[in-house]
Write a protein that binds this DNA or RNA. Structure first.
Length: 419
RNA sequence: GGAGGGAUACCGAAGCGGUCACAACGGGGCGGUCUUGAAAACCGUUAGAUGUCAAAGUCACGGGGGUUCGAAUCCCUCUCCCUCCGCCA
């Protein structure tokens, strides 16, 4: 949520930045609403002041035994006017709030300007892509041949875009979850295990609602949604709070649920795009001054998993046209996927500035005792299913077996996945 | 699911129709006096939103609605928490 006052003060600039991220919201009509609301508020507050004063007089007069009939009638008349005005104010506020709810965050000034993903900037390449002296297989074929992944059976019991992990496949998924959480808690993140269902307020707070309702699974006969990411639970743990202590760091495992409505037919094979997948999420809540620095840290912490797993990856900075709705600045981490012959997103690390904290009302007191909106950040650390896919493909051997990455040995209990 | 009890500032809690939200009283936090230092004691300080250059003002006692000239206080409703009973991993 943007600050309406900031929009009013910096209208022209904000129009340009919104165009840069391909958003064509009519800012002028929002400001018309805002001015109408301000006028109505001024009017009603004057009336309220008057009637409050007279009401206090009534109490005084009664004590003195004076007659209050006339004054009571006068206040009663004002009251009915106030009621009408209050109703129109409530309507204006609702309209303004819902208009603001659909306006995306303003990109940070450091974000490269671009129309779409072709404008993204590669900022770092890490590791060497594996060279195979045989024809490498895709992870779904490897998983099928090794009998560790089974989409057919999952389609049978649920539907498309689900997967069953079996034997060492299931063990690999679980090992990665534990390895990632262990690594992040060593780096100072507090581990959280939170509900997989949240209410609509939480979904609004982090920006999934109202605009992206179609992307979410809603639980029938309840007002609850299945979380699309643990970002929702971790960030909203502190909604409606004034925090005394900041620079909070959380990590959590959660299953994530997404409809993937707009991607029919894309990545339908394998683990890349599922309706349900596991993810370790990192969330930071910090002061306004430190969020830029914290974004670099959270990105580094997410990368550390890939470095320890010795998987080749690169980092790109998203340009204005490719930035997510709530984000002010985002680094995507992409892992090398031999079967795609390109890098595939495995983590997205974002600084949201005060966009989410305005929505979910997360504040802190600065050193002068003034309350301010906190800054929030998050990053995947990492998407587990895609990590499994990357390990299978990058660590495959000529004989169809998979070498287990060294750091996973204590978790896997074996150095090789074979039939 | 049944029956009760609650929700007030960082925490506990008073208030039960106008004098109690510039929120009593405790505790905590912060600052100070005293002390070699600490403890204790004493003194001071500590609270939302909106608005404004600053004020004034307006709003806020879990959320929403109602009664009243006036509601933290009365009524309705929703949410959440606690206790007991029932059911149940």
């Amino acid at each position: 949520m943007l600050d309406i006052k900031r929009i009013a003060e910096d209208k022209d600039n904000i129009k340009v930045t919104l165009l840069n991220r391909n958003c064509d919201v009519d800012i002028d009509s929002v400001l018309v609403l805002y001015n109408k609301l301000k006028d109505a508020l001024k009017k009603v507050e004057t009336l309220k002041e008057k009637s409050n004063k007279f009401s206090a007089d009534i109490a005084k007069f009664k004590k003195q035994g004076k007659d209050t009939k006339d004054i009571v009638k006068m206040v009663a008349d004002d009251k009915s006017n106030i009621k009408i005005l209050d109703q129109s104010i409530a309507e204006l506020e609702k309209e303004l709030k819902s208009a603001l709810a659909y306006i995306p965050n303003i990109p940070d000034s450091s974000v490269p300007i671009g129309k779409d993903e072709s404008g993204n900037v590669e900022v770092l390449v890490f590791g060497d892509k594996p060279k195979f002296d045989f024809s490498p297989k895709a992870h779904w074929d490897l998983g099928n041949d090794l009998k560790i992944l089974d989409q057919t059976t999952a389609a049978n019991i649920t539907g498309s875009r689900f997967c069953i992990y079996r034997g060492l496949g299931a063990r690999l998924e679980r090992s990665l979850i534990n390895f990632m959480l262990d690594t992040h808690t060593k780096n100072g993140y507090t581990e959280i295990f939170a509900p997989f269902m949240v209410n609509a307020d939480s979904m609004f707070g982090t920006g999934q609602l109202p605009k992206f309702e179609e992307d979410m699974f809603k639980v029938a006969s309840t007002d609850y949604y299945l979380v699309p990411t643990a970002e929702v639970t971790l960030t909203n743990m502190h909604s409606q709070q004034i925090l005394n202590q900041l620079n909070l760091s959380y990590c959590a495992y959660s299953a994530c649920f997404r409809k993937e409505g707009g991607s029919a037919g894309r990545d339908s094979r394998g683990l890349i795009r599922q309706h349900q997948f596991n993810k370790i999420e990192l969330v930071k809540i910090c002061t306004q001054e430190s969020s830029q620095e914290q974004l670099e840290i959270i990105t580094k912490d997410a990368q550390s998993i890939l470095q320890l797993l010795e998987l080749p990856y690169r980092i790109i900075e998203l340009c204005t046209g490719d930035l997510g709705f709530s984000s002010a600045k985002t680094y995507d981490i992409e892992v090398w996927m031999p079967s795609y012959n390109r890098y595939v997103e495995i983590s997205s690390c974002s600084n949201f500035g005060d966009f989410q904290s305005r929505r979910s009302n997360i504040k802190y007191r600065d050193s002068n005792g003034k309350t301010k909106f906190a800054h929030t950040l998050n990053g995947s650390g990492l998407a587990v299913g895609r990590t499994v896919a990357a390990i299978l493909e990058n660590y495959q051997q000529n004989d169809g077996t998979i070498t287990v990455p060294k750091v996973l040995l204590p978790y896997m209990g074996t150095d090789k996945i074979s039939l």
